[in-house]
């Protein structure tokens, strides 16, 4: 059983703090590392894979420090985000070279098994440089699996994949998790993470924002106050009618541009309320737009909590 531990870890580059006092434990099974771009996911994965020392705190695998310890790679398989591999090698040669670099007793057999696991036996004789994005991702997976590691780290593995490739990779990762491996993958897309990960760690602006089961995270994200911008034929009348309902937490008249800014705590009830209230008061709605639907705002809500 392999457990990754990040204990009060910060990492800064000059004046920029990339990871800010993060503590988390990653256990066997699939964990999704969720956060917007630039949140510090790659920095965390770099520290977990021994390619960056933490500025403070400790990053360990089963209590062994990861930085500066090349023996740790017997237990870790890494799938980097960058696509570059050894383009001039065939898929078979690439995975075989990885097996040999690990000093495995039977590199040929290990290569065959790894390529079979990612369903890449047929194109293995073609050069990696000719592979599609999905095939590349799978051959990278094979190279990370070739030594049968207990930990698998994947940095944005779904980036640029089409839906079919995505499904295929998800199936593969599920198998890895079911085998009792500790699988950690990063993503900035909530849907990806909740489809795959039993456990989610959310990181925003370098800080650990939330941690837990995907249902919990989902609830946190949908039950937060939603903000809408509304323009209508009678903003003041609409404001008066809306504030009477319990689902509306706040109404503000926009003095400069006109229009209303509404905050609601119950998204579904408000969705039914607004058209009904407008019809009853004979007010025409010109514009209804969510003011904060971007992923960033969802994340920053989580951080403020």
């Amino acid at each position: 059983m392999a457990t990754l531990t990040i204990d009060r870890v910060s990492r800064w580059f000059g004046n920029v703090v990339a990871v800010n006092d993060v503590t988390m434990t990653i256990r066997p099974g699939i964990t999704g590392l969720l956060g917007p771009n630039g949140a510090g996911k790659s920095t965390l994965i770099a520290m977990l894979s021994g390619f960056l020392p933490p500025s403070t705190g400790a990053v360990t695998l089963d209590e062994t420090p990861i930085w500066g310890n090349s023996d740790i790679y017997r237990s870790i398989g890494l799938v980097p985000e960058r696509e570059a591999t050894f383009e001039y090698l065939t898929g078979w040669e690439f995975v075989l070279a990885n097996a040999q670099l690990h000093g495995l007793a039977d590199p040929g057999g290990a290569t065959r098994r790894a390529l079979a696991a990612v369903d890449m036996e047929a194109p293995a004789q073609r050069r990696v440089g000719e592979y599609s994005k999905g095939m590349r991702q799978r051959v990278k997976m094979a190279s990370a699996l070739v030594h049968d590691p207990s930990v698998l780290l994947l940095d944005e593995p779904f980036n640029g994949m089409d839906p079919r490739q995505r499904m295929q990779l998800m199936r593969l990762l599920r198998t890895m998790g079911d085998d009792g491996r500790t699988v950690l993958f990063s993503s900035h897309i909530l849907e990806e993470v909740e489809q795959l990960a039993q456990h989610i760690e959310v990181i925003v602006a370098g800080r650990h924002a939330a941690s837990g089961d995907y249902r919990e995270i989902r609830r946190l994200m949908t039950d937060r106050p939603h903000q809408y911008r509304i323009r209508s034929s009678d903003d003041r009348g609409l404001a008066a009618a809306l504030i009477a309902d319990g689902s509306v937490a706040g109404v503000a008249l926009d003095g400069t541009d006109g229009g209303l800014n509404i905050e609601t705590t119950e998204f579904l009830r408000f969705a039914g309320l607004l058209p009904r209230v407008a019809r009853d008061a004979e007010i025409s709605l010109y514009e209804v737009s969510p003011a904060d639907e971007s992923l960033e705002s969802v994340f920053s809500y989580l951080i403020r909590r």
């Binding site: 894979s49 390619f51 090349s70 790679y73 017997r74 980097p80 960058r82 570059a84 591999t85 670099l101």
Partner: peptide
């Protein structure tokens, strides 16, 4: 430059 050095470095082998 292209990052493929990672495949050599992430191995139980002295740098």
């Amino acid at each position: 430059d292209d990052g493929s050095i990672v495949y050599l470095l992430a191995k139980p082998m002295s740098r």
